[in-house]
């Protein structure tokens, strides 16, 4: 074998291995399409005492749909990269911190939007950085800006609306951009 041929094989295979990515878009789209309407619903139900009910409902729907997609994908999965593992750990840590943040917010009787946006922004930003996918980097920044707005500038009654906008910019739009790329 010629040495130039060796170089070509190494390049081709390295490029092939970079294509070995999970289809992450489905999770962003599912959670975005569940959480953004939940935020809008909470805003519309502002006079209703039990408006918080939208969050457990949305979480259950999102969790069930994600589990179905995850199960299907794991059956089809043929390879795994270090990036898959890092992204998996990032979102695992996010899930744990999310539960903790919501429990803490409930215990101090404060709405959890700011903390949730902050955590989601961090995990989205890291996912974008690791996968070099700019829409997630910008999406993560949009979520952090929404968190800052909720924390310091926007009155509490509008937090669920800001939350919905953050999720639209951070999850839904980048999720659909990624899905188009995955389908190419």
């Amino acid at each position: 074998m010629e040495i130039t041929e060796s170089v070509k094989i190494i390049e081709r295979m390295m490029n092939e291995s970079k294509k070995t990515l999970h289809n992450y878009s489905a999770y962003f789209i599912i959670w975005g399409m569940v959480m953004a309407p939940a935020g809008i619903a909470e805003y519309l139900l502002i006079d209703y005492e039990y408006r918080w009910i939208v969050w457990p409902i949305a979480s259950i729907i999102g969790g069930v749909l994600s589990a179905i997609v995850g199960n299907k994908q794991s059956k089809k999965q043929q390879a795994s990269s270090a990036m898959d593992r890092v992204i998996g750990y990032t979102w695992g840590a996010f899930g744990f911190c999310l539960i903790l943040a919501i429990a803490y917010a409930v215990s101090i009787q404060k709405p959890p939007h700011t903390l949730v946006l902050m955590l989601a922004g961090g995990a989205t930003f890291i996912s974008g950085g690791i996968s070099k996918f700019k829409p997630f980097i910008y999406g993560g920044l949009a979520l952090e800006l929404a968190a800052i707005a909720c924390a310091f500038f926007i009155p509490g009654e509008f937090h669920s609306l800001i939350f919905a906008v953050g999720i639209l910019l951070g999850y839904i739009i980048p999720g659909f951009i990624l899905r188009n790329i995955e389908n190419e």
Partner: peptide
Amino acid sequence: MNKLNKLLHQELRLAIVSYLAGVEWVNFNK
């Protein structure tokens, strides 16, 4: 050319190892 690792200096073996260097694991079918 003598210096090159003879086991890797073969088209298919080099392809396998180069691909695996970029992933954690892969199925035989892939």
